[in-house]
């Protein structure tokens, strides 16, 4: 019953009950003192008796206590009633305050978790920070699930391998999930997340190339191998070719983009479409899973093709679609 009242009302009810308890006590005291024990008494004595009894003070100054049998029975019953009021009241007043304390300790978050079509970042580290900052810049909603999720981004405090934490992050309706912890944890996260959402894309980080298959079997779509990526960058640098410069300068700034060919473009060649001037330099075409590199200007596009192109300097500021 108590819990259905807000704190302010509870305080009011408690005070009313306290006052009526004291009034009942004082009235009973006066009646028994006057009509049973035939002694004169005062209002002060009556109130003193009531409060001393319900506060379980334990003894009364001389002349105040009830000495008749009826008076003693009244004192006993009144003591039980008074204690009920006091302890019940204190519990009702203190428990919401304790609840509030606990809720504050869990840290209440001001930034809401996105509802759908968002990206779920699992784990909080330098990589998550950089990905988060980028997503914020391009206005893609995301949420971080980590034991120590930061307060300045939307987040859920919890273990990303737990079903409950992932549910709080609305994984059911997310468009992608990125697992940034170690392989063992990433496998658990993926298996858990896949039960909630079959459709979204899952990208997972892996320390070693050999863990790749295990992650894919668990349901990961793209495995990013730290070892392979860093080694290949070093490798290109050692060989002295241009790839390492490119990876920093062009790939790094997302200058390589993709475009899927719809009905409006199908059946026409790159040259006819003036692809180079209007879009960028086509460097590859994915057609039914096969890659055509260095497409000729006369290459005729088919519906469903995906053209990989590089933006030229004059297109550089169009941003990401």
């Amino acid at each position: 019953m108590w819990s259905s009242f807000p704190l302010k009302n509870r305080l009011l009810i408690f005070l009313l009950m306290l006052i009526s308890t004291i009034l009942v006590g004082s009235l009973g005291y006066v009646i028994i003192k006057t009509y049973v024990e035939h002694e004169s008494t005062s209002l002060t004595n009556a109130i003193f008796f009531s409060i001393a009894t319900i506060s379980t003070l334990g003894h009364y100054p001389r002349g105040i206590e009830l000495t008749s049998d009826a008076g003693k029975w009244f004192t006993i019953l009144y003591l039980i009633l008074g204690m009920g009021t006091i302890f019940g009241g204190i519990q009702a007043l203190v428990s919401p305050w304790i609840e509030m304390k606990i809720r504050n300790a869990i840290k209440e978050r001001k930034i809401p978790v996105p509802k759908d079509a968002h990206v779920v970042l699992c784990g909080w580290n330098d990589i998550a920070r950089e990905v988060g900052e980028y997503l914020q810049m391009v206005d893609i909603p995301f949420v971080i699930v980590a034991k120590d999720a930061p307060l300045n981004f939307p987040g859920v405090n919890g273990d990303p391998g737990d079903m409950d934490a992932l549910k709080l992050a609305n994984v059911e309706r997310a468009s992608a999930l990125i697992a940034l912890l170690d392989e063992k944890k990433n496998v658990v996260i993926t298996l858990t997340a896949r039960r909630l959402n079959r459709e979204m894309r899952i990208i997972a980080l892996s320390e070693r190339e050999e863990s790749k298959n295990l992650l894919i079997k668990s349901g990961v779509d793209v495995v990013i191998s730290r070892e392979k990526l860093l080694r290949s960058l070093l490798d290109h640098w050692i060989k002295g070719d241009f790839t390492h410069i490119f990876s920093g300068e062009i790939f790094g700034d997302l200058k390589i983009k993709e475009l899927s060919v719809g009905k409006d473009m199908a059946g026409r060649s790159l040259k006819e479409l003036r692809f180079r001037e209007r879009v960028g330099t086509a460097i590859g075409i994915y057609r039914r899973g096969l890659l055509i590199t260095n497409p000729k200007a006369e290459e005729i596009l088919k519906e469903g093709d995906i053209v990989i192109f590089m933006e030229g300097e004059n297109h550089a500021d169009t941003g990401i679609q």
Binding site: I127, L135, A176, R201, V222, L254, I320
Partner: peptide, 8 residues
């Protein structure tokens, strides 16, 4: 990661 997210 961003590349695989935005332009797979």
């Amino acid at each position: 990661i961003i590349r695989f997210l935005l332009v797979p």
